[in-house]
Amino acid sequence: MNPVGPLLLAALLFCIGVYGIIARRNAVLVLISVEMMLNAVNINLVTFQNLLYPDDPLVSGQMFALFIIAVAAAEVGVGLAIVFNLFRNRASIDVDDVDLMRW
């Protein structure tokens, strides 16, 4: 199997995720960007499992990907809860408004 396609896809997803986190102001979109980065990692894990250890009976790459999906779900739950509370306090989910930790 040629790994170039999935790896390029993963790199593209990761870069889009990084850009989204840095550039987006909407907190929900930031969370989505995080999800994209996590899924880029998942693609990499599955790809390298099949590329490097195709005979591993435990298929640990796929297993890790499953764990990450589960953790990501939990993380999104927590993240959305934060965003929800943010909106309740400030009537806004613009991350630029959240600057309580400035000087």
Binding site: I21, A23, D96, D99, L100, W103
Partner: peptide, 17 residues
């Protein structure tokens, strides 16, 4: 230097990247 501490997490992240 304190002005670097903007509280804007995205800016920190950008610097990190």
């Amino acid at each position: 230097l304190k002005r670097m501490q903007t509280g804007d997490v995205q800016r920190y992240l950008g610097a990190l990247v």
